[in-house]
Design a protein around this nucleic acid. Structure first.
Lengths: 126, 126
DNA sequence: CAGGATCCGCCCGGATACTG
DNA sequence: CAGTATCCGGGCGGATCCTG
């Protein structure tokens, strides 16, 4: 379970708040685009336009939307250079780096299991 | 990147196939309900109805849909007991257990960063 | 170049009813 | 109890246009 990992002397109301917060964060973060953005920023700081090509298939709208969300949660930092034309850099924060570790693990798992899954699908019939 | 981690003497076409497969798997797996189901099955084998209550908020339809998907990818095994009323058990396969490790890490990360994110949100303004 | 705003089609996902 | 089928509304997400 995502929730109910805290116990002890805390107030019940506090626990419920923590629970709903945890679920909210999980819902935010456990989505394809967010994780792909995190992964892309894992290598290095990227500009908006760079992210757009780094995360293949993402639309303008989804990119901004997810970037705002990640920024709101303090996982991605945003640096605006007051130049013309404007330049905006996105980079993982330290909490963001923590998440990156698990995303990396997930990507690695995907590749390690590629063959198994391919075969499983064939057996399943598709 | 999710893709392009293989290199060497393989055929270009093979690489592209592996890439698109990896993206497909990632899209399948990197969604809220799938991860919550994996997490729930991490503790023990569960019946359909048990999963329904274990994964809070999931609808009948989403549960079956995601279970089929996970089964198709060979991450979750399905055991039908020919009794009446019918009983169906769902359990992680060995590849599924591998994914569980990373999901667990993600949940742990969520809880570890709860306070930081809470504060980040407040600073962001909301 | 970054990104807000708007329109809108399509599909996700919930509710319900029905079968084995 | 487990699962499929159908209907349908809300929202996701793409395309486009516009600002600084």
């Amino acid at each position: 379970m995502v929730t109910k990992q805290f116990s002890g002397s805390a107030d019940e109301a506090d626990l419920r708040r923590a629970d709903s917060l945890a679920r909210e964060i999980f819902s935010d973060v456990a989505n394809k685009w967010a994780l792909l953005i995190i992964e892309a920023l894992g290598e290095r700081t990227l500009r908006f336009s760079e992210l757009r090509t780094a995360v293949e298939g993402i639309s303008h709208k989804m990119l901004t939307q997810n970037l705002r969300m990640l920024e709101r949660n303090g996982l991605v930092g945003r640096t605006v250079h007051p130049t013309v034309p404007p330049r905006v850099d996105y980079a993982l924060t330290e909490p963001g780096r923590g998440l990156l570790v698990t995303v990396d693990a997930m990507c690695e798992w995907t590749h390690r299991r590629l063959a198994d899954i391919d075969e499983a699908r064939r057996r399943f019939g598709g």
